Computed example of a mutant assay.
Amino acid sequence: MRKMHLVLMTFSAAVLAGFATITPAAARDYPWCARGGDYDYPGECSYNTHEQCQASVSGRLLYCDRNPRFAYGQGLPAEPRPPRRVRPVAPY
């Protein structure tokens, strides 16, 4: 019985350690969205091209439309550039 408790405690610690290291996936919007069906607005926006979207929605009673964040110029904010390093000037 004592061995079983040790195994359960070890397993529980391993599971908790696994959950502690999980990070959320980075959200990324693409220019094309699959819309209709059970998708909420704006839809499943995970397609780079209209052709990719069309291939995905084929036979699923969905349609493709532009992602409103891209269509109206509200794309994802650009990542800030690192500060520029300036080399010091040597005195003459």
Rank of each mutant, 00 (worst) to 15 (best):
G59N: 09
F70H: 11
L6P: 01
V57R: 04
A17Q: 12
E44A: 14
L16D: 01
A55M: 02
D40A: 15
Y92D: 13
T23P: 01
Y47I: 05
Y41K: 11
V15Y: 04
M1C: 12
R85W: 05
P24Q: 15
A20S: 15
V7P: 01
L16C: 13
R66L: 15
P88W: 04
D40H: 11
G43H: 05
S56Y: 15
S12L: 14
L76P: 09
L62T: 03
A55T: 13
E79A: 15
Y30A: 06
S56K: 10
G43Y: 02
G43Q: 06
R28D: 11
Y72T: 13
G75V: 03
R85Y: 10
L61D: 14
G37N: 11
P80D: 08
R28P: 01
W32V: 14
S56V: 05
L61I: 08
H5E: 13
P77S: 08
P24T: 10
G18C: 10
A34S: 12
V86C: 02
H5C: 12
Q54T: 09
C64K: 03
R35F: 06
E79Y: 11
D38P: 01
T49I: 04
P77N: 09
Y92I: 08
I22Y: 10
C64N: 06
L62Y: 00
M4P: 00
L8H: 02
W32E: 06
T49Y: 00
A13L: 14
P24N: 11
Y47R: 02
C64S: 06
P31L: 11
P42V: 09
R2G: 11
G43I: 07
S46T: 07
F70M: 07
A34G: 03
F70G: 04
Q74T: 04
V89R: 12
S58W: 00
G59K: 03
A34T: 00
E44K: 09
H50W: 04
Y30W: 12
R69M: 13
G18N: 12
F70I: 07
A17S: 11
P91I: 08
R84C: 00
A17D: 04
R2K: 12
P31G: 06
L62P: 02
C53E: 05
V86M: 03
S56L: 01
I22V: 14
P83W: 01
A20F: 00
V57W: 04
N67T: 04
Y63W: 13
V57D: 06
